[in-house]
Design a protein around this nucleic acid. Sequence first.
DNA 1: ATAAAGTTTCAATAATATTTGAAAGTTTGA
DNA 2: TCAAACTTTCAAATATTATTGAAACTTTAT
Lengths: 165, 165
Amino acid sequence: MQYADAKQRFIQAWGTLGATWGINKAMAQIHALLLLSVEPLSAEEIMKELKMSRGNVNMNLRALIDWGIVRKENRVGERKEYFSTGKDVWELARQVSRERRRREIEPILQVLSEVQDVTGDNKKSVAEFKQVTQDLYDFSTKVDGMIEKFTKADQTWFYKLLMKL
Amino acid sequence: MQYADAKQRFIQAWGTLGATWGINKAMAQIHALLLLSVEPLSAEEIMKELKMSRGNVNMNLRALIDWGIVRKENRVGERKEYFSTGKDVWELARQVSRERRRREIEPILQVLSEVQDVTGDNKKSVAEFKQVTQDLYDFSTKVDGMIEKFTKADQTWFYKLLMKL
DNA sequence: ATAAAGTTTCAATAATATTTGAAAGTTTGA
DNA sequence: TCAAACTTTCAAATATTATTGAAACTTTAT
């Protein structure tokens, strides 16, 4: 397969994958492009390559920076900004897990604990409610702890863990 | 907090959480309602409780059944169908992991391997491309294996694993 | 064979999310 | 201070996804 085709195919697939996670397509595609690029790219270059508007590129670059997976770079004697992403897949996974933990698990734990002190006449329903939300809370807490460990550990730890399975 | 409020709050939160994953709000809300319900519910009851159209309830129930997390039940002497979901959080997590693995990891592994035999003039770019896609492939394969283990193991195994961390 | 009781489908509509691009803002050098 | 080079914003336009509801379909009892 020719380089240009492979590149297109990868960027497309990465965009689709992103979309099935909460990450929008443009954001995932910009990330894919940066992953493949040997040199950092300017907004201009990204626009041209992905046929995206300036505003879209700018907004999604900012989101990627906010997620902590893309960096801005400045070159001496140049006004333009360049963007790059780390090529370390492990580090990427950690960063994404960390953000998703913060954005998703924390809010649901919050709700689950708020809702625990429920009262009502229908004993059976209330009991079932407490049971289910308590179970979910316990499980989520465990997963949360696991992700926390994961995001703080180093790659070696992870590989050793995989061995044990 | 009163039962009715707590219930609403939980259903709402579960819907939102679902939406940030690839699961649509209605689907997650129906699931939440069934989770809390002591008895199986009919489509009619779900419609009424969630103020959703018949079609929407039907389609999303089918999707939940397709995901393997909701069951149809028939009662003797009744034409109507009733729906229920398992209350075991662990089993739910396994089922969801299994489906997401099938729907998301498998396709990306497919693309990553297809794209490996890339050729082109720009040696450096091609080398970078191969490196990145290979790394992603390896990592994804590992995660895939981990999820497979997870979905086949039992709860005890998981808790023991958590202990080790 | 018919009708009652229910389920499923799907085209139209509504709601959400993404993208554009022009205008406003910022930074830098002369 | 000015203007060139670049970045950011955001209201409007587009595209995508979810929802409705009426009609078609299915099943069962008589």
